[in-house]
Design a protein around this nucleic acid. Structure first.
Length: 467
DNA sequence: ATAGGGTTAG
């Protein structure tokens, strides 16, 4: 079920590959791999080159790149540059770059191993669903650094397994914690574990985990209650969600908060039960919970989905009156809604309004626009959309191009579809499985079996490296 | 630590 990259590193792969940097990365950057041992400016150059590649992909690390490039000659300031670069890569979840920068950092004279750094990297790998690299990193920490793990490190490891659906490994890690000194699992650990159970739809594990918690004398806090409620809600198990909410209300220590409210509102709204959504909106206010802009975004989305456009606009007006400024998400929801309804005029109107109000469109906005044009059969507007982004600092990403290619695939413009694949490669967006599946389908639909076969062979040759 | 926009195919 999980991606091939989601398998933990086996003993054999570790033997060949002593580091936690992924194979594909090492292969593609083979030339930069060998570090001159004594030259002090060379690592700077290498870091700069990692960051340049990073910046080309994402556009986020430009500041860090500039910082490092400026310091090519001066060795003094460079710990700071490396740490900043690492921070930036971690913050933007570029796990491959983060691991490369970290590996480089470990080779510096000033480097001191810290469990905090490991915990942060492991947490990031969990978010990126990379249990293999996480397990390898954990082993490096134990055997090469000889650091004693902390609760935070173990907890991050629980998440690294759990968020990839490897719940057996996550549970085994919790068992490991119980046996380790000063690493007893705490509320934080269990909140991650329960969240992982919910995200993997393993609701059967929740009662035993809760039992285990009470056995260990750990109470159920607000975050854990909210995670359970949201989990049932997202799974559409509304009866169970109700029970979980009752449990929370009965548990005197925990008062519902804005997270509880938004989860409940989402659960009803997303399933078209707008009456219940409205009922709970008032109910939460009676309990003293005030809505926030996310609440309104969820409601706008729900009304949009139910084709209740006038109510959608009412919420928008209400927000304005209450001084809740609409966010990019608000506009994206509205744009998407009108696009889906085929109302191009309103879609374009809100896109203009968004820009007038000084809210920057993002790749999601452009994606919704493309979907709208695709639905309305006016794809000739798409190139202009792409051109428009070139004058801004918006960096078009892979999902955006998925959207574009999907649009041309549907309309049967095979040639433009292929040009767009070319364009996305030029813009350093990695095409993934989704795109190739779409393109193969399009080739088959147009009787281009040969092209479909060729592409399938290409996909197979990528093997596990393709997401 | 938990809540709000997007990409497949059915």
């Amino acid at each position: 079920m999980h991606s091939p990259a989601g398998c933990p590193a086996t003993t054999s792969s570790r033997a060949i590959r002593p580091s936690f940097v992924p194979m594909a990365q090492r292969g593609s950057r083979g030339r930069e791999q060998r570090l001159p041992s004594s030259s002090s400016s060379a690592p700077d150059a290498e870091l700069a080159s990692i960051l340049r590649a990073e910046a080309a992909v994402s556009g986020v690390s430009r500041k860090a790149t500039a910082a490092v490039s400026q310091q090519q000659q001066s060795t003094r300031l460079w710990p700071r540059a490396v740490l900043e670069a690492l921070d930036s890569a971690v913050a933007s979840c570029h796990w491959e770059s983060a691991l490369e920068i970290f590996e480089l950092m470990r080779k510096q004279r000033w480097y001191e191993p810290r469990t905090r750094t490991y915990a942060r990297l492991l947490m990031m790998l969990g978010k990126c669903r990379q249990p293999g690299p996480a397990a390898a990193l954990f082993r490096v920490m134990l055997s090469e650094e000889r650091l004693a793990p902390t609760v935070d490190v173990y907890t991050a490891l629980v998440g690294a397994y759990g968020y990839s659906g490897m719940l057996d490994e996550a549970l085994a890690t919790v068992e490991l914690m119980k046996g380790a000194a000063d690493c007893k699992p705490d509320e934080y650990t269990f909140s991650i574990l329960i969240n992982c159970c919910c995200k993997s739809r393993r609701f059967d594990l929740i009662p035993p985990v809760l039992d285990e918690m009470s056995y260990l004398g750990i109470g159920c806090n607000v975050v854990i209650h909210n995670a359970i409620i949201d989990g049932y809600g997202k799974a559409g198990m509304l009866a169970e969600m109700g029970t979980a909410l009752c449990n929370m209300l009965e548990d005197g220590d925990n008062v519902p908060d804005i997270y509880t409210m938004n989860s409940i509102i989402w659960a009803y709204g997303n399933r078209g039960r707008v009456d219940d959504m409205e009922k709970w909106y008032s109910e939460f206010q009676l309990m003293g919970v005030e809505p926030d802009s996310r609440t309104f975004n969820i409601m706008i989305k729900s009304y949009g989905k139910a084709n209740m456009h006038e109510k959608m606009m009412m919420v928008l007006k209400y927000m304005k009156r209450r001084f809740f400024s609409p966010t990019a998400a608000t506009f994206n929801i509205i744009i998407e809604c009108f696009g889906r309804a085929g109302d191009i005029e309103k879609m374009e109107y809100y896109f203009r309004l968004m820009k007038i109000q000084g809210i920057k469109p993002n790749p999601i906005t452009y994606c919704s626009l493309v979907n709208g044009y695709s639905k309305a059969g006016i794809l000739d507007k798409v190139p202009a959309i792409i051109r428009q982004t070139e004058n801004t600092d918006v960096v078009l990403d892979t999902p955006f191009f998925n959207c574009v290619i999907n649009a041309y695939a549907k309309s049967g413009d095979i040639k433009i579809m292929e040009e767009m694949l070319q364009l996305m490669k030029e813009k350093k967006c990695k095409p993934g499985k989704v795109i190739y599946t779409t393109m193969i389908q399009a080739y088959i639909a147009h009787g281009m079996d040969e092209a479909a076969k060729l592409l399938e062979i290409e996909v197979d040759s990528f093997g596990n490296r393709l997401l």
